[in-house]
């Protein structure tokens, strides 16, 4: 008996996968129903949803990039300390000490790519009119996901603590300081520069160690958890709204 078959018949394998290999119709149905990851999918779907020219695979790629970011991000957390003394130094070490180190690269380019694919995914959902009933609410969740993607990217931008990152975040947070009502430089402002929205964001009046810590916690804990939750909701709703959209 070939080794492969032997493995497949072993008690260990059978305890993990509770049905024969998915080579015939009943077992192809079963594999999707019994596997936690696969059961995000329906068992069957209309053929047009498979065509790359319909979905551009953009939602799926965005999700995959999110997973890549989670994995590389966790690995980066082993090397990175969010303090003014160490942040930049740890970046240098990642670049100069780790051989074949492309961790930072994969994380950064993956993030840029995710922003782009999320925007393009939105474009395709718009162009196919897939936000129309019954999928209105899933579009709303999608918009929140896009906003979260941008925020994740923005908070991560500060962490290398070089000139590029600090001043980019300064430019961004100054805009918040000019918000009407809640920004100290905005029209009809009723707050000071110690109590406005920018202060909430930065924990200080300018980008410094408080902001670094805040952005770190947001970037590594709060926003990813929120995004993961919304993605779960997004996928759940795709199923509940009747699967991939198509002409009636």
């Amino acid at each position: 008996m070939p080794l492969w078959d032997r493995i497949r018949r072993s008690q260990v394998w059978k305890s993990i996968f509770r049905h024969p290999p998915p080579v015939d119709r009943p077992n192809r149905v079963k594999v999707v129903l019994t596997n936690l990851i696969l059961h995000l999918h329906p068992v069957a779907m209309p053929k047009h949803g498979l065509r790359l020219r319909f979905t551009w695979c953009m939602g799926g790629i965005t999700f995959f990039l999110f997973l890549v970011e989670v994995v590389t991000g966790v690995l980066l957390m082993f090397y990175y300390r969010p303090t003014i003394q160490w942040a930049y130094h740890d970046m240098l070490a990642l670049r100069d000490v780790v051989s074949y180190g492309i961790l930072r690269e994969v994380h950064r380019w993956g993030a840029h790519a995710m922003v782009i694919t999320a925007m393009l995914h939105m474009l395709r959902v718009f162009l196919t009119g897939s936000y129309k009933p019954p999928r209105e609410f899933n579009w709303v969740i999608g918009v929140l996901l896009l906003a979260l993607t941008l925020l994740l990217s923005f908070t991560g931008y500060l962490l290398p603590w070089d000139q590029l990152s600090m001043w980019a975040v300064t430019v961004g947070s100054n805009m918040v300081g000019a918000a009407p009502l809640v920004g100290h430089e905005g029209p009809a402002s009723w707050v000071t520069d110690q109590s406005d929205l920018r202060y909430v964001l930065l924990g200080a009046r300018s980008v410094g160690e408080e902001a670094l810590l805040r952005f770190y916690v947001l970037h590594c804990v709060a926003l990813p958890l929120l995004a993961a939750f919304l993605m779960a909701l997004h996928f759940w709703r795709i199923r509940k709204d009747g699967g991939i959209s198509g002409p009636l």
Partner: peptide, 19 residues
Amino acid sequence: PVEKTYAEKVLVWPDLVYI
């Protein structure tokens, strides 16, 4: 629309999973 001519149902395993 063209999409309508592709309305036939296919199984997710293997078609979608492999894509």
